[in-house]
């Protein structure tokens, strides 16, 4: 079943410069969809619109078949809980004056009937899940490295057990081992809870490894969509081809891959 759908979504910030132009995209329950595209093509804009944080100029976002913007009361609350976004720049999406623990506890306070002890325990559990230590709960954002901040943002998004997590370059500052571990963690949640993911990334190899399907954006629309395996050889659209062909080889020039 379709969890979230964008239908004919248009958006522009400057007259005459549309960012999204009648874009259609759907994520199914439990599905992992990779979203690729040139820098500046509108992926983060799409993410904000998909979560209802920004209004599209035209078109609609449907959550389980119903317009997101029309939901009220308990249903709107449920949608806010079910859809979580990990923003592209971790450092600025965290309040610099809140400890990591307080940031992660915020969605718990809103959505879970937990007392203080229960919340603290859940925060500790979430920190460990994303590869940090429970005692990191007391530190401020300024005391973490770039990759550690991204882990905090992922923990915060996972706190209310969403149905869909939108990851906007959410592991881009992590080393490869850290990226693989975190994505394995999310893949585990998908197996146990059916959590879907819209995975916005410039790392084609990560999308290929972790997603079911991959979509490529260009000129404000989806121009290519298909199964993640073999996407590089199937892509026809010039914008998609350009991305796939530009991926840096894994080894120094002159060294053959074994």
């Amino acid at each position: 079943m379709t969890l979230l759908a964008l239908e004919g979504v248009g958006k522009s910030y400057r007259p005459g410069h549309p960012v999204l132009r009648g874009l259609d995209l759907a994520v199914r329950d439990g599905e992992w969809l990779g979203l690729l595209g040139q820098s500046g093509c509108g992926k983060s804009t799409l993410a904000r619109i998909a979560l209802g944080l920004e209004r599209p100029d035209t078109g609609a976002v449907l959550y389980r078949g119903r317009p997101l913007a029309g939901l009220r009361g308990a249903e709107a609350r449920q949608a806010r809980r079910d859809l979580q976004l990990v923003f592209q720049s971790a450092a600025v999406s965290l309040n610099p004056r809140l400890t990591a623990g307080a940031s992660i506890a915020e969605p718990l306070r809103n959505f879970e009937p937990l007392d203080r002890r229960g919340r603290a325990a859940r925060v500790a559990e979430l920190l460990e899940m994303v590869g940090l230590r429970p005692e990191d709960a007391g530190k401020l954002p300024g005391q973490f490295s770039g990759g550690q901040l991204q882990r905090i943002c992922i923990a915060r998004a996972l706190a209310p057990t969403p149905r869909l997590i939108v990851m906007d370059e959410a592991v881009s500052s992590l080393d490869l081992v850290g990226q693989a571990r975190l994505l394995d963690l999310l893949a585990g949640l998908r197996r146990s809870l059916g959590t879907a993911c819209l995975f916005i990334t410039h790392e084609i190899r990560l999308a290929r490894r972790f997603c079911d399907r991959v979509a490529v954006m260009d000129g404000g629309r989806i121009v290519e969509e298909g199964p993640a395996a073999g996407i590089e050889s199937m892509a026809r659209h010039p914008a998609a081809r350009a991305l796939f062909d530009a991926v840096l080889p894994p080894l120094p020039p002159g060294m053959a891959a074994r």
Binding site: D175, L176, V177, A180, R205, L206, R208, P249, A256
Partner: peptide, 26 residues
């Protein structure tokens, strides 16, 4: 070695490189 192994694993499914450099200078 751990970092290189993670890198190699991620790149293992790459399409075989087209006619680009496999010169074997190293």
């Amino acid at each position: 070695r751990d970092l290189l192994a993670a890198h190699a694993m991620l790149c293992a499914d790459d399409r075989p490189p087209a006619k680009t450099a496999t010169v074997g200078a190293v």
